[in-house]
């Protein structure tokens, strides 16, 4: 356990005290539908019947108005716009990406909520408004998991206007 203290005669200065919580997670009806759709390569959102905003991923009810979304779903593009980004230079356990890497808040076309993901681009190229598209695993590896999307990559489209995403920053 105490790999920091391997030298048998060194004083023990640090101990590991991990805390682990083991859940059996039930996705519920709405998220299950979302996950079954992503296994087919489809990205489902749901529209709030009160203000028409499209929530992604789909969920059972509107967090703002408390109304149920029912069965109607909206299929979204796997293209979107970088709303904000961060360059990660500090390693984190459980994230096996090579440093530095870019995380993005991406607004998928047709959605009104942002998705947090990773962007494969040169550090100097990433910018707000950049147009990006999801890169998927090979189709035969798709499962009911958001991990079907590996990362996003830039695409050759003009940057989105600031007004088009400013309320999502």
């Amino acid at each position: 356990m105490s790999d920091a203290n391997e030298a048998a005669n060194e004083p023990i200065a640090v101990i590991r005290t991990p805390i682990s919580l083991d859940y059996h997670y039930s996705a519920g009806q709405s998220a299950s539908r979302f996950l079954r759709a992503i296994a087919q390569g489809k990205l489902l959102g749901q529209k709030c019947p009160v203000d028409g905003r499209v929530y992604f991923p789909s969920r059972g009810a509107c967090p703002q108005h408390g109304v149920t979304f029912g069965d109607e779903v909206v299929e979204l593009s796997d293209k979107g716009t970088v709303v904000t980004f961060s360059i990660v230079r500090v390693p984190s356990e459980n994230i096996p990406l090579e440093l530095p890497y870019i995380t993005i808040n991406v607004l998928l076309d047709g959605a009104d909520t942002i998705l947090i993901h990773v962007l494969d681009a040169k550090l100097e190229d990433v910018r707000m408004g950049m147009r990006v598209q999801a890169v998927w695993k090979p189709k035969e590896e798709w499962t009911t998991s958001t991990a079907n999307i590996l990362y996003f990559r830039p695409i050759d489209e003009p940057d989105a206007s600031y007004d088009s995403y400013k309320e999502h920053i």
Binding site: V14, T17, D22, Y23, Y25, G70, D71, E93
Partner: peptide
Amino acid sequence: SPTLEKALTAPHKLEYTYKRSLGPVLS
């Protein structure tokens, strides 16, 4: 909904990988 399907389930492990510095007495 009339289209009720069985909800998907999965194991989910939430882990905090703390290390604790012991200090001059507990060390």
